[in-house]
């Protein structure tokens, strides 16, 4: 059985988790063009090596981050998202061009 350690709930069967994609720091919304936004939201680097990924423990809907070696499939560590997201991000409302 393959186990993954949820930072909130402890080690659980991998079937209790959902993969949520690679983690990338969000670019500055005020200095980002649509192309860069699309890259941030949709594109993955698909790197061979150690990457940081989003995972969700489905039974508790708890999202967290994991460092995983994509070559060996070894999980180096898992940690709470609050390690990286420790302050509220407010988006300035702008009357942009919606066309």
């Amino acid at each position: 059985m393959k186990l993954l350690t949820c930072p909130l709930n402890g080690p659980r069967n991998i079937s209790e988790f959902t993969y949520g994609g690679e983690y990338h720091p969000m670019p500055d919304p005020n200095k980002t063009d649509p192309r860069q936004w699309a890259e941030h939201v949709f594109f993955h680097d698909n790197e061979a090596g150690i990457v940081t990924e989003w995972w969700c423990h489905s039974a508790s809907s708890f999202w967290f981050l994991a460092e995983r070696n994509t070559i060996t499939d070894q999980v180096i560590r898992t940690f709470e998202a609050s390690e990286l997201f420790n302050q509220r991000v407010d988006f300035a409302a702008e009357s942009g061009d919606n066309s």
Partner: peptide, 9 residues
């Protein structure tokens, strides 16, 4: 424990 019970969360 928040977990899977008979495949149900």
């Amino acid at each position: 424990a928040q977990t899977s019970l008979a495949k149900i969360n």
